[in-house]
């Protein structure tokens, strides 16, 4: 068995195990840490696929940004040691059933399908190519989605601030938890 296959299996195993932990752990902070592992392993897969830039982005943005954000919000909204109540059995059984059926359906479809690769030579991917493609408006240029995403990010930023900003206290809000 080749080295890279072993590494792939390692990453795959980490991803599967920690994904499951992410969605089942009853301590929300542990779930967040599991998610971090999953994301780091995914970055490893990107490296294996020879997308070094994207792997770096994944590490920086997901692992460094989003997970930290999530942990912050967890700390804001709940206690560290707080255990979440167990999942309703009926709900989890039905969900698991649907998910497993969907998984079987997808995997059998994947295995039955024969993928056709192009014969064209692989392109060299380095920062220069990516940067030029991102700002190019020629064929294979991505300036339009790039601009759109920048507008989206700005809008999301503004929206996040406005939503989270402490407005006037809502006194008449229904509160099912407090009597």
């Amino acid at each position: 068995m080749e080295m890279n296959q072993i590494i792939f299996i390692l990453f795959a195993a980490i991803i599967v195990v920690f994904s499951i932990l992410t969605v089942t752990s009853r301590r929300i902070l542990r779930a967040a840490v599991s998610l971090l592992f999953v994301l780091v392993s995914t970055a490893g897969l990107y490296f294996m696929l020879n997308f070094a830039f994207l792997a770096a982005v994944q590490l920086a943005l997901y692992a460094g940004g989003i997970v930290v954000l999530i942990i912050f919000s967890i700390l804001l909204t709940s206690h560290i040691s707080q255990k979440m109540e167990a999942v309703d059995l009926k709900k989890s059984v039905f969900s698991a059933l649907a998910v497993i059926l969907g998984m079987i359906l997808t995997i059998t479809t994947i295995l039955q399908f024969s993928f056709q690769a192009t014969t064209a030579a692989a392109a060299e991917i380095n920062m220069e190519v990516i940067g030029k493609a991102m700002l190019s408006y020629e064929v294979d240029g991505f300036v339009l989605p790039f601009e759109l995403i920048s507008v989206l990010l700005l809008a999301a930023m503004v929206a996040a601030i406005i939503i989270a900003k402490k407005g006037s206290p809502v006194s008449d809000a229904p509160n099912p938890d407090k009597p």
Binding site: A12, S19, I20, I28, T77, A96, V99, I100, G102, M103
Partner: peptide, 24 residues
């Protein structure tokens, strides 16, 4: 691998009660 991850995510989406869990 991707589809397993996808469906595990779906499972979490359906069963988690914590909003942050759903986000994850």
């Amino acid at each position: 691998l991707a589809s397993i991850m996808f469906f595990v995510g779906i499972y979490g989406f359906l069963t988690r009660r914590n909003l942050i869990g759903i986000l994850m």
